[in-house]
Design a protein around this nucleic acid. Structure first.
Lengths: 203, 203
DNA sequence: GACTCCATGTTTACACCGTAATCATAAGTT
DNA sequence: AACTTATGATTACGGTGTAAACATGGAGTC
């Protein structure tokens, strides 16, 4: 086990950072957590938090969009993990409802990240890692729906469930489900769960 | 009928614009139509299109957010009108489905405007005219749902329907329902209509 | 060990943005 | 005609993303 570049830098006060890429992503995530709005996330601010010059990020990302895409990828990985945990918390339809609650709770807990994940505009085409991460998250929902409905309807039902949950998450994040729902992920998830149970999944 | 200020200006080459406020909102709308992304909408660019200096907008809007809110307001007015037209196109549940299709078609036809309407972040508190316009649009959906379900469930069912349709619109706008759905409002509306009909509204 | 190469930061520079402060003009009022 | 008010223009400042040129330090080679 050799010491990491970052450790060496801290010990020796070296010129090179060593793990700038990961540090910048972490900095971006923390900016999103504080600001709640992807517009507040700037390259220079991220570099500042990483303790590095304004141009340093360009050695690791071709432009700002690339950093945003990398951060969004982390977001989808986190969402994927949250959905898997929730799915294991119940059986049958309850697992589906739990996924929905987890989805909305995730969005409300990290609104800035959620908005970035789905607002990634100018990213054309989206990096492979991003589509892979979002696809993996989608697969968790698709698998659960496939276990509940006939195979012929699985694709449509998955899309419909996703749209329903995503809509609730988007509305909650934008404060249109009430102020307390946006502020408290627990409250938002509870509301989402109640509405989800109104939704009669055809067996 | 006296000539408008703008007409007088055009005739006399006057100093004052005369209808800058409306012109700026129109300029903002055209920017959104071209760019598709609210981030491309800048105060200076709007002023440029209005043929006016960069600072002139501040005589009509306290800051950028105020202009954005005014643009979002006309967006909600347009959405409101589209929903009313759609609602009259059918009877019972078909009217509800038509509203949903119109909602998604609106979002896909004007993705930038749609994103602005629901992404209006730092607007705290939202101007009265904006909440009035969005409330009026919501009322069209609420009225139709109220005519379809028992009164005790009307509020929840309205919210659920809205979330479902809004989710489909958001996913379509962000290109997650397929490329052709995002590009062609007709295709997106058709897909939304198909999914909506899978949704068994409890009578 | 000394030399070279290259990945990685830094510095400087430019065009754009939102906005505060100040000045200029046109229109309306008396 | 003179004064006031609404509405425009100019200038200036700090912020941003990014291109270009420069500096540093670690890795491999002789």
């Amino acid at each position: 086990m050799s010491t990491s570049k970052a450790e060496r830098r801290q010990l020796k006060g070296g010129y090179h950072h060593g793990e700038l890429r990961e540090t910048l992503i972490a900095a971006g995530l923390s900016i999103l957590e504080e600001g709640g709005d992807p517009a507040t996330l700037g390259l220079r601010e991220a570099a500042r938090r990483a303790g590095v010059s304004a141009m340093a990020p360009y050695r690791h990302f071709p432009d700002k969009e690339a950093l945003l895409a990398a951060i969004a990828t982390v977001g989808f990985e986190r969402l994927h993990a949250a959905l898997e945990v929730a799915d294991r918390a119940g059986e049958g339809r309850e697992a589906l409802y739990a996924q929905g609650e987890a989805y909305v709770a995730f969005a409300c807990a990290q609104p800035g990240l959620f908005r970035l994940m789905f607002g990634a505009r100018s990213c054309e085409p989206r990096p492979d890692s991003l589509v892979a991460a979002s696809g993996a998250a989608y697969a968790v929902l698709a698998a659960r729906v496939a276990a509940l409905v006939p195979a012929a309807r699985a694709a449509d039902e998955t899309l419909r469930s996703w749209a329903l949950v995503h809509g609730m998450a988007a509305l909650a994040v934008d404060g249109l489900l009430g102020e307390e729902a946006r502020a408290d992920p627990q409250v938002a998830a509870a509301l989402a769960g109640r509405l989800l149970r109104l939704d009669p999944v055809p067996g």
